[in-house]
Design a protein around this nucleic acid. Sequence first.
RNA 1: GGUCCCAUCGUCUAGUGGUCUAGGACGCUGGCCUCUCACGCCGGAAACAGGGGUUCGAACCCCCUUGGGACCGCCA
Length: 496
Amino acid sequence: MKGFVMEQVRVRFAPSPTGYLHIGGARTAIYNWLFAKKHNGTFILRIEDTDAERSTQDSIQGILDGLKWLGMEWDEGPYFQSANLNAHRQAAQLLLESGHAYKCFCTKEELEAKKEAAIASKQAYKYDRTCRNLSPEEIARKEQAGIPYVVRFKIPDMQESLIFNDLVYGPIERKYEDIEDFVILRSDGSPLYLLSNAVDDINDRITHVIRGQDGLANTPRQILIYKALGAKLPQFAHMPLTLDLQKRKISKRTHGEVVSVQFYREKGFLPWALVNFLALLGWHTSDDREIFSKQELIDAFSLEGVSRSNSIFNYTPGDAKFFTDPKAISINAHYIKTMPLNELEPWVNAVLKAADIFDETFLTTQKAWYYSTIDLIRQRFHTLNDFATLGAAYFSDNFPMDSKALQKNVLKHPQLTEWLPQLAERMERLDSWTLETTEKAVRDFIAERNIASGTLINAIRTVVTGQSVGPGLFECLVIIGKDRTTARLKNTPTLF
RNA sequence: GGUCCCAUCGUCUAGUGGUCUAGGACGCUGGCCUCUCACGCCGGAAACAGGGGUUCGAACCCCCUUGGGACCGCCA
């Protein structure tokens, strides 16, 4: 970067608020955010709410909440495109005056007929430029007559191609003759997306337009707008799309909640785990790293690592084992089991509170115990919610009893109604409550009565934790404590 | 239909002419560990879409075919 002054990077995420924040949009936001952070630039949020019909306040709020939850904080905005209508109209006026645009009086019916005719004769349809060469007199007459008109952009009449270098896809070429004189202003004077979006990007001094690949086809036309307006061109970078296993674009309509960011929040995802997963869906480094801290990801990120082929969100509806892409769950589990306990703790607090099994003493007098407990059980958890479900028995006496576990490990052995209370009495007399003393008590009991050790151990686990699986039994007992353990063992007969 | 883009294990991908009998991760799977389930560790199955070139040599370069996707609104 020596020899010239690096321009201050400004990027934006510009969603239209017509639904919740979905993972494809979130990924685009993440890439923009990473690019901004990487280059000490500015990340701008712009809500493109000019479609009043479909835009909703709920949706705007959902996008804001989703981005905040993910940690994708913006430096400027949110700006609202609807606030810039005048600037868009002025730009159109400017284009009209400079001869880069013209008024088109063709009616929708006329255009529709031409389009159908083109399709019928298997010709590619493109506006035939009927109004492009209207004389000033004709234009004045039509206007006088009150004939409504749209404003169309005048594509340069050249044989060459428009070429631009996409930072992800490389050189993209489009012949001028293949581009239609597109509409930039409706007959009611309101601007269209292609214009609004470009004008806003110019006004926001965006240096890098990082967006989904569906914007690739719009780019040549927007470049033409930039040029006609005399604006400096930004760099363009298009991201591959996220498809489902049938290679369809993911959408709420066909995929439901699983593609919304909110879903992952509710399912017990750590926001950074989702960010990490999404960043990897279509981007990679050339080494084998897949787990990145925030700073590591910022340092490693580069547009060059973005792949050009669409990536598939590996989700199978109705999968009994995986409620979303298995890799996403795997990454979430990885963070849960490896992150520093003091960072994990607040997330656990939240789910326990939501399940109404949180106790304020967990953070005061019982803090050491609380941390040990989290540390003990997190190894086999995949989501934060597991702490409140599979882990409930460690935090509260109000825990669910897994019916299969009960059936298999307890109800099959009626003698447990006597054994477990007897064992409880013996354990109550223990002077200390450690791995060694609890194990000795149980092993002695087993030896005295000649019980199969697995039978008793599994039964104890089920009665005490409500689960057939979990950490080593004695570690469980030590963590759960003497009082709770013995009380639950004594309670065994009521389970029958 | 037109224009543009893409193509390595099931999925995310490494790979930019020789080091590729194609590497990693998730998932699947065999084993070890073990009171259970995980974790962990050690293994396994699993891919260069097809065909032509170019080259001493091609996953990598070129062409064609096939397949997939995007865009083609007075939506954004």
